[in-house]
Write a protein that binds this DNA or RNA. Structure first.
Length: 340
DNA sequence: AACGAACTCAACCGCAGCCAG
DNA sequence: GCTGGCTGCGGTTGAGTTCGT
């Protein structure tokens, strides 16, 4: 037994609302309120489905709605809340007076997701991509890696493709860098980079290769995933290097950033908050320890040791230091990946 | 100037949860 | 406790607009 439809599809109008329809709906609701959406179109003299009326009212006609650009403060709130509650748009919108869940959802999908991706942060987990790559390559046995890699590929594919196809980066390792010693599998160098299928194939092959390799140098492996998949030289703009391989590509990070007072990006963007870290992530930042996207390992290092590693990282231009791997041209505390 | 690609956002769809009977 | 109807929610679509070549 199927559900009865909310209205007869043949007799209802669909698509854009006209000003006349808006007027009818708004004036009816002003008089009678929003009780029983099924009856509203009938009583208001509209050839619309009740659901359509409700949507029109809640997303557009409600007098308390704010129209226009999202402010930076609103964007910060969305990012912070999304890192905690995920795609619970109505919950997020409830914290933004005058904004609807549809507004928030659209803004996230069209703007904020791309901004985060451009910063090298996975908009799903709010962790740096590099951290996720490292997790894939280091923490699991090959059969599990295969599954996780497949899942991750699904999550990132769109962002990767977007960046890959939007802007091709000329890739020239700085002279004297260890990058010059890097050998790339020739078989992987000839994928047609503008072809989406080719791109997907490259990504998949890179992941497959990483899975097949011995897990003796996990940091190299995470690099190889990106390198052999063709991501590193085309898409990973702003990638400074990893594990003894140092590169400098054109930074793609735009005006939006997790800004950190006293942290090298002074004066840009607005404040970082530990709440931007995903719930359940490795982030254990506390107020006063405001480091962007930092991969906090509770109790893994004492302060002196941390400082030492941080200094080493600064000196070393993206090398492998002790048990951590510096992956991104972002503030170094953001990018240090503890190697499991 | 023309055309195609990319982007935006209003609207739709279908599922899930809630609640009254 | 079960059923049916209503509402809310999140994902998706597509028309209109803007941008790039």
């Amino acid at each position: 037994m199927g559900r009865i439809p909310c209205c007869e599809k043949e007799s209802v109008k669909r698509g854009q609302w006209t000003p006349e329809e808006d007027n009818k709906l708004a004036s009816y609701i002003a008089q009678h309120g929003t009780k029983n959406w099924r009856l509203i179109p009938k009583n208001a003299g509209l050839q619309r489905c009740g659901k359509s009326c409700r949507l029109r009212w809640t997303n557009y006609l409600r007098p308390d709605l704010k129209h226009g650009e999202f402010s930076e403060a609103e964007e910060q709130i969305i990012v912070k809340l999304h890192s905690v509650v995920g795609n619970r748009w109505s919950l997020i919108a409830a914290q933004l007076p005058g904004r609807t869940d549809n507004d928030v959802k659209n803004h996230w999908n069209t703007k904020l997701k791309k901004k985060l991706s451009g910063m090298g942060i996975d908009p799903v987990t709010h962790k740096p991509f590099s951290h996720l790559m490292a997790e894939i390559a280091t923490t699991l046995a090959p059969p599990q890696v295969a599954h996780l890699a497949e899942a991750a590929l699904g999550c990132f594919k769109d962002e990767m493709l977007h960046l890959l196809t939007k802007k091709r980066v000329e890739f020239s390792p700085p002279s004297g860098s260890s990058a010059q010693h890097m050998v790339m599998d020739p078989a992987l160098q000839h994928f047609p980079s503008e072809d989406k299928d080719g791109t997907i194939q490259r990504i998949k092959m890179g992941l497959s290769r990483a899975i097949m390799q011995e897990p003796n140098n996990s940091c190299d492996k995470s690099w190889d995933i990106m390198l052999s998949s063709g991501i590193a030289d085309q898409q990973m703009d702003g990638f400074v290097g990893t594990c003894g391989r140092s590169y400098q590509a054109e930074a793609v990070v735009d005006e939006f950033r997790y800004d950190v007072p006293n942290y090298g990006n002074e004066g840009e963007g607005s404040g970082w908050s530990p709440s931007m870290c995903t719930a359940g992530s490795t982030c254990n930042a506390v107020p006063g320890d405001q480091l962007p996207g930092r991969l906090h390992e509770k109790g893994d290092k004492d302060e002196g040791e941390e400082d030492e590693i941080a200094n080493d990282a600064r000196k070393g231009d993206g090398m492998l230091f002790g048990s951590e791997c510096v992956l991104w041209d972002l503030p170094d505390d953001l990018t240090r990946i503890p190697i499991v």
